[in-house]
Amino acid sequence: MPIPGPAHFKVAVVWRGDAKARAEARPETSRFAAVFAALGRHGLAAEPAVWVGGRADVLRAELMGMDAVLVWVNPVTKDTGEDRGALDALLREVAAAGVLVSAHPDVIDRVGTKEVLYQTREMGWGTDTHLYASCAALAAAFPRRLAEGPRVLKRSRGNGGIGVWKVERAASAEEVLVQEASDRRRRTVLLDAFLAERASDFAAGLTLVDQPFQMRHLEGMVRCYVSGTRAAGFGTQLVTALAPPEHGRAPPRLYSGPEDERFQRLRCLLERDWIPEMTNLLGLKPDDLPVIWDADFLLGPKDAGGEDTYVLCEINVSSVFPIPDEAPDVLAATTLRRLADARR
């Protein structure tokens, strides 16, 4: 049963749209209808608040009157390349005024970029991970690591496969075969030319993270949905973004609740060990973590006992949706608890 709480906590649900989407936004017809319904079941008064680029003044007036702001906005718009810098500045301003913001932009900076893969590389979910902050560093170290086997390069910020490449040696020693995750396009190019292309990433203030390609990737990926520090459900999906074209497109992700028996060992590792270790490494408190976020895991080599190991692929905190059917009530309960704690 929902935990009764103080009446009339006001919660804004924010997503990106245009002026038309803003004018027509309704809780019951939005893609977040299940989230609005769950917030209502927990006694929270939720309202839509659509972010329209260039209209920060309008959104600011709305958000300053809220107790909490829950945000679903991707870091980069795939079609236009628009980032969320202006929105993040506004959210920091709103949070400084005492409004609960999830995910807070500062938390996104620590948890929601690919750099977290490097910062947590020594944890149980880690692998041979490296971070490059310049073209010179990339050119000095990447060719040597590539000689040991296929690698995956990831921009520190991105979504939908944008800025993720599988790179492997081609028949010629000077060439590499590159596949981009966003469109699965494959091309053979001189290694020096590919490295030179990455200058634009560093010029944009990004870094590049380098991991070994996981050979079991075609066995699927497990997405763990988390609310704060507790599992809220799971998603399973075959991964073909970096697979040869003959494997076709991946089928839809299948969702299940936090009690799914297949993932209780992973759930235990995540809740008992990895989340506390991650928050400690990143200088966060448990309640800094978003009310909904997810961690994507690929299967690593089996351990000595024949058990699967898990390799962290990425953490998503900016716009985690869709989510399992069980997750809206879990995130609503987390939101209510944090608001109630703040009021005490």
Rank of each mutant, 00 (worst) to 15 (best):
P245S: 11
P105C: 07
A332H: 13
H104M: 07
V94K: 08
T240G: 04
Y132S: 14
R22A: 04
D83R: 14
E259F: 03
P328W: 11
N316L: 07
V71A: 06
V291R: 05
M123Q: 12
S318C: 13
V73F: 13
A332T: 06
M1E: 04
W274E: 11
I108K: 05
S256Q: 06
A204K: 15
G17N: 12
R267N: 03
F213T: 02
W125P: 01
S182F: 08
A295K: 02
S102Q: 11
H217Y: 10
R185P: 01
L242N: 05
L91W: 10
C224F: 00
R267A: 15
M64P: 01
V69S: 14
S200H: 14
L254Y: 10
L131Y: 05
D57H: 14
T80I: 07
L138V: 01
A241D: 09
D109R: 14
G81C: 02
W125Q: 11
F194M: 13
F36L: 00
S182N: 07
N280I: 00
L39D: 11
M215D: 12
P322C: 13
P2G: 06
E197H: 13
A61T: 10
G112I: 02
H104R: 08
T29I: 10
A196M: 12
D294F: 00
A45G: 02
Q179M: 13
W15D: 04
E261N: 00
L90H: 12
G158L: 05
E277H: 08
A170N: 13
A199I: 00
C135M: 09
L269Q: 14
T335H: 01
C268L: 11
S156M: 09
A304R: 15
Q264C: 03
T127K: 00
D325L: 11
R186H: 09
E326R: 07
G112F: 01
A147L: 08
A231D: 02
